[in-house]
């Protein structure tokens, strides 16, 4: 009955990949490398354009706080230093993280351990939606809605804690402060921190959670004893990712912060710094030399953000291994 045609041809096993496979692999590789190349190109561009500033001002660029484009006719009178802006960026981003993390933590725990399925779906999409709100909308909302209220909170904070230097103000003006910018940023980074927190909390070992329940542990007890400690380093990583985002945020901060070229640690004072906002505010009308200064500032911000992100990734990774 069986004829030759019935016998399947022997499939040759070859070490050579098929053409389509090669093509696909190539396309994927290009895609993967592209991001790396783009990153390198950006860094290269900033370094190339800003190099002269580092050569002219050296470390002073990082330690001084003067930003003076100088006489239009004489670039040698220009003085560039981003200490105030850098300190401001870190200060505001830190405020944002300090405010956002507790909220993100509660949101993540609620979504993972308390919320019924329907609520969980709604909350997750709402958080995704928050992440999709454009920065400029945040800025406008922050300026016109958040700030009038936040000024009141700042006043209250000042009246109770004004004796502490951090909450002192040089003049009773509470608008456009690092505090308000930080609050706004906190809301903006909430989705990313929450999403990381959810991921790490979701990975808390089910066995131990069950064990906690089965030992008369309350749900809070289980979360406190098992979930939160297990998620701790992951959450730190999430917070740092948020920090990285907060550091680079431009437009929103720009509208709710009074840029002042003076290192300021008084978070309620209406004076602060932000590298990204500096660049945004000066870029349009900068002289060629000032433009180099802005590029150099951009490079510093780029490197700081890169460092923070790398650290965050490492921490999150370590957390996953530990679990």
């Amino acid at each position: 009955m069986s004829t030759e045609t019935d016998v399947p041809e022997i499939r040759l096993i070859s070490g050579v990949r098929k053409r389509t496979d090669m093509l696909f692999r190539g396309a994927m590789t290009v895609g993967a490398l592209a991001s790396l190349v783009i990153l390198a190109l950006i860094a290269g561009f900033l370094l190339f354009r800003g190099f002269q500033i580092f050569a002219d001002f050296g470390l002073g660029f990082l330690t001084s706080s003067t930003w003076d484009s100088g006489d239009v006719n004489d670039p040698t009178t220009a003085r560039f230093g981003i200490a105030a802006m850098l300190v401001g960026s870190v200060l505001i981003a830190t405020i944002a993280v300090v405010v956002a993390v507790p909220f993100a933590m509660s949101a993540a725990l609620f979504i993972e351990y308390y919320a019924p399925r329907a609520v969980r779906t709604v909350l997750t999409s709402v958080l995704d939606l928050i992440a999709a709100v454009p920065s400029v909308i945040w800025g406008i909302w922050g300026y016109s809605v958040l700030m009038p209220d936040a000024e009141g909170w700042a006043k209250t904070l000042h009246s109770w804690l004004g004796w502490f230097p951090l909450f002192d103000v040089p003049a009773p003006i509470f608008g456009r402060s690092p505090f308000i910018a930080g609050l706004l940023l906190a809301m903006m980074i909430l989705p990313i921190v929450t999403s990381v927190a959810r991921e790490v909390y979701g990975q808390a070992p089910r066995d131990h959670v069950d064990a906690a329940y089965a030992l008369g542990g309350t749900r809070w007890g289980a979360l406190r004893t098992v979930v939160i400690p297990f998620g701790r380093s992951g959450l730190v990583g999430g917070a740092m990712l948020g920090l990285g985002r907060a550091l680079g945020e431009t437009v929103a901060v720009f509208l709710v912060l009074n840029l002042v070229f003076d290192v300021n640690f008084k978070i309620l004072a209406s004076a602060g710094g932000n590298v990204a906002s500096l660049i945004a505010s000066r870029f349009g009308e900068a002289s060629p030399y000032e433009l180099k200064g802005l590029m150099a500032a951009g490079l510093v911000l780029f490197l700081v953000t890169l460092l923070v992100n790398a650290a965050a990734t490492a921490v999150v990774k370590r957390a996953k291994v530990a679990v």
């Binding site: 066995d207 069950d210 329940y213 089965a214 030992l215 008369g216 309350t218």
Partner: peptide
């Protein structure tokens, strides 16, 4: 729910 039953488990 488990946490209210007053059970103890040795796994």
């Amino acid at each position: 729910p488990a946490e209210l039953r007053g059970v103890g488990v040795v796994f």
